[in-house]
């Protein structure tokens, strides 16, 4: 650098490679966007869409019964089997029923809990309660499922508690699966509901009472309608998580088969990957339909 005493126009910056790239990016917003999005978009396509596509393709192949190897002969047999065979239909319906019941139970339990945390408890208690709700998520899923296995077992906690009031433990059954799943996914329902209650300003509740509404009317006409997107967000979690579950069903379900257990059995013991892929498409299809239906409510904006 030389020292100049005379003022003169700022010298043009040297036209290095970096500067040229920067200038080009500055001039072209499309180029900028492409630079930013290419990597994540490629990742999404590779990991998410390509994996789904691979699943679909696998479902259209078969397994050579002699060698046990996947043969790449195209066929719709697997898809037809899982959609028309009464066994698979029954399993699909059972899985759907379990997911719906789990979602309903969680909704009923989570609503008052979330309301209490968001609107009744003071700030310090609110934080503690949130931690308490999140705490079970720190424990392994397996540990919780096995804990329920003990609770539900013959001579277990539930039987001991229920005996004086004449309630029997459901044993290892579909009911046991519902109970366990409802317990495991409950935090996923409480959290969005809590966020939803937080978004209802106190003044709205006060205004409703002020205008003459009794508490139940306020709940029905003001709080619940505002909460609908949060409720749907919660149901998406509990419903889809229950729909895909296979571990709980194995641990506490006894002979109860869910779609997940069928996939698991076909990937492992039965060594029929194409059939497993075809079965896996059922919950995907159900959830897509559900998401399509709830998209209209705006609930997806709250996830």
């Amino acid at each position: 650098m030389t020292l100049e005493t005379k003022p003169r126009p700022a010298p043009a910056p040297p036209r290095t490679g970096n500067r040229r790239v920067s200038a080009a990016l500055h001039r072209s917003p499309r180029l900028r966007l492409a630079g930013l999005l290419t990597a994540p978009a490629a990742w999404l396509i590779l990991v998410y869409i390509a994996a789904l596509a691979a699943l679909l393709i696998t479902a259209l192949w078969t397994v050579d019964t002699f060698t046990g190897k996947v043969s790449t002969t195209w066929t719709f047999d697997n898809i037809l089997t899982v959609t028309t065979d009464p066994v698979y239909q029954a399993i699909t319906l059972r899985t759907l029923r379990i997911a719906v019941v789990v979602t309903l139970i969680d909704m009923v339990i989570a609503l008052p809990i979330a309301f209490f945390i968001a609107k009744v408890a003071d700030k310090r208690w609110e934080k503690l309660l949130i931690v308490a709700v999140l705490m079970p998520l720190w424990a392994s899923y397996l540990v919780k499922a096995y804990a329920w296995r003990n609770v539900l077992a013959e001579g277990g906690l539930l039987e001991w508690l229920g005996a004086p009031v004449g309630v029997n433990s459901p044993g290892y059954s579909e009911t046991a699966v519902v109970l366990t799943l409802a317990y495991i996914w409950l935090p996923y329902m409480i959290l969005p509901l809590h966020a939803g209650f937080e978004r209802v300003p106190d003044s709205l509740i006060e205004a409703s009472g002020d205008l003459g509404a009794k508490p139940l009317a306020t709940l029905r006409l003001v709080i619940l309608p505002i909460l609908v997107p949060s409720i749907i967000a919660g149901t998406i979690f509990t419903f889809s998580l229950s729909l895909g579950d296979y571990i709980t069903a194995q641990i506490v379900g006894g002979t109860t088969q869910m779609l997940g257990t069928v996939v698991y059995a076909n990937v492992g013991a039965a060594n029929n990957l194409p059939l497993a892929a075809a079965v896996a498409f059922i919950p995907i299809a159900i959830i897509m339909i559900y998401l399509f239906v709830v998209r209209r409510t705006g609930a997806l904006n709250n996830l």
Partner: peptide, 14 residues
């Protein structure tokens, strides 16, 4: 509040 014959215009309108 629902049993009082007064009504409120709230600061944030509510």
């Amino acid at each position: 509040p629902f049993d009082r014959d007064v009504n409120t215009v709230f600061q944030d309108y509510a």
